[in-house]
Each structure stands twice: as structure tokens, then as C-alpha cells.
């Protein structure tokens, strides 16, 4: 399976993990440099949290990880992002295939309002013209993994917009999972949700860890501490591009950070 591969299959074996590693990543909007020399490895079957004050480039970086950054007019990047030994920006890789391997969940839940819950889950295979042998099973498996199955199993034919915000977000997670991505990116997935829904999604993340590599952006330090194995602290000094100040295991970042700015940030002194 390569990133240029035309023939599409849904792999169901989750045994083998997938490591996503970014090296020397720079990002521009127009001529404005917003990220400089980011190096980060998201190990297979771990959760990596990106934290940092607003505007430091976390979203930009996470969007670079699945080639959605380039959808913004004038957006540019440099550096490499390697998945399964292949550069996702390599000359033979195709953005659509990359995005299928590296799914993304957004801050605001965005189910397709005209589709039913089941259709939403199956939207990915349909958009990519992937033949699904057993759609019902795919819907059930994906919704179960996203922790939503029990709540919606009796109303799969209701519109996706009829769910609560937290349920919609889990529907979006299920929709991403239905194309069996190797990596799931989440950009502040809980910031529009209430504490209960947030807790529910954190549990979901905990359960998904065994299946998939997860990168999550969050402003909630407790959340980062609860769900992440690895934490990277981004910071953009005034008029400077964003950089990673420090990264390491969750315990190290929260209890024993090397850089005073890191410990100030994670303990709420600024930001």
C-alpha cells in the first residue's frame, strides 16, 4: 500500500502500527512564515498532544500532517512528513490518498447535514468510490469504535444534524474511522463541547489508541495530561514564527519541564 496507490482497499488489520514523523517542517501563508523547523515523531499507537498559546501554529502544523494546509490559497510548506517510510509530500504521492490514510477531526463538528447518520459514516468510502462489502457492519464497527453505537443504533436513518454536539463530534470521528486511516488528527475536538461529551470523547481516544496513531491539539492542559503519551509545546514569540519549545513524555512536560516557559504554560502562568 503506497501513497500513490490507485487501487483502494480498506485494511482491517490494525495489528501493525504506523509512525508519522515530521522533520524540518516550515509553513508560510503567502510570504509570511508561521512555522519554523518543526521536528516531531508521533509513534505508532500513541497519542501525541500539541499544546501552546493561540496563534502559535498548531492548527497549521496538524493540517500539514494530512495535506489540508495546501487547500488555503497561498499556503506553502517545506520539510518532510514521513508515513510508512514514504514522504507524503513526495512527487508520486497524491493528496487525496494521503488524506485517506491520515484522517482529521475538526474543532467544530461538521457532519453532512443532508445525509443520515449511516450515510455520514459511509461518506468516506462513497467519496472515494471504495466498494464496501458489508456497509452495515462498517457502520456498526466505526460507530462502536467512536463510542456512539449504543446511542444511535436505533436511528441510523435520521439526519446527522439531529444529534447533540458531542454526538455529532463522535459521528465525525466514526466517519473518519470508516476509511480505516493509519493516523487520526484531531484539532481541538472538544473545545465546542460540554464536560460530559468531552469526557466521552477522551474515553474514545483512549480506546482508539490500540488501533491507530493519534495527534491531538488541545488548549485543555488536564485533557493533554489525561490522554497523551507524548506532548509537544509550541510557541510563537512576538513577530517570530512558531517553534516547538520542548517536547517529551507527558510526565516530563507536566512535572519536570526543562524550559521555564513550558512549565509556566502548562501550569497556567501564561497563555
Amino acid at each position: 500500500m503506497t501513497l500513490a496507490d490507485a487501487t483502494v482497499t480498506l485494511s482491517t488489520d490494525a495489528a501493525e502500527g504506523h509512525t508519522l514523523s515530521a522533520s524540518g517542517v516550515h509553513a508560510w501563508f503567502g510570504s509570511h512564515l508561521v512555522l519554523e523547523d518543526i521536528n516531531l515523531v508521533a509513534e505508532a499507537n500513541t497519542v501525541t498532544a500539541l499544546i501552546g498559546p493561540s496563534g502559535c501554529g498548531k492548527s497549521t502544523f496538524i493540517r500539514i500532517l494530512n495535506r489540508t494546509h495546501e487547500l488555503v490559497p497561498g499556503a506553502q510548506m517545506a520539510g518532510e512528513v514521513i508515513l510508512n517510510d514514504e514522504d507524503i509530500y513526495g512527487p508520486s504521492s497524491r493528496p487525496t490518498v494521503v488524506r485517506r490514510h491520515i484522517g482529521m477531526v475538526f474543532q467544530k463538528p461538521n457532519p453532512f447535514p443532508a445525509m443520515t447518520i449511516a450515510q455520514n459514516v459511509l461518506a468516506g468510502p462513497k467519496l472515494n468510490k471504495i466498494k464496501v462489502t458489508d456497509p452495515d457492519e462498517l457502520v456498526e464497527v466505526s460507530l462502536t469504535r467512536a463510542g456512539l453505537w449504543r446511542e444511535v443504533k436505533d436511528r441510523l436513518d435520521k439526519p446527522g444534524g439531529s444529534l447533540s454536539g458531542g454526538q455529532q463530534q463522535r459521528l465525525c470521528i466514526a466517519r473518519s474511522l470508516a476509511v480505516h486511516p493509519d493516523v487520526l488528527l484531531m484539532d481541538e475536538p472538544c473545545s465546542a463541547l460540554d464536560p460530559t461529551s468531552t469526557r466521552r470523547i477522551e474515553e474514545t481516544i483512549g480506546e482508539l489508541r490500540d488501533l491507530i496513531t493519534i495527534v491531538i491539539v488541545t488548549h485543555n492542559m488536564q485533557q493533554a495530561e489525561r490522554v497523551a503519551d507524548h506532548v509537544a509545546f509550541f510557541l510563537a514569540e512576538e513577530n517570530e514564527p512558531g517553534r516547538i519549545v520542548e517536547q517529551g513524555s507527558t510526565a516530563k512536560i507536566f512535572e519536570d519541564a526543562d524550559d521555564p516557559r513550558t512549565s509556566d504554560y502548562v501550569h497556567g502562568v501564561f497563555g
Partner: peptide, 12 residues
């Protein structure tokens, strides 16, 4: 560090 020049994003 002088940033490298942007990559040409081909593909697709």
C-alpha cells in the same frame, strides 16, 4: 536559521 525555500506541492 534561514528557512529553506517552500516545496513545490505536486501530486494529484
Amino acid at each position: 536559521p534561514s528557512p529553506p525555500s517552500p516545496r513545490r506541492l505536486g501530486g494529484g
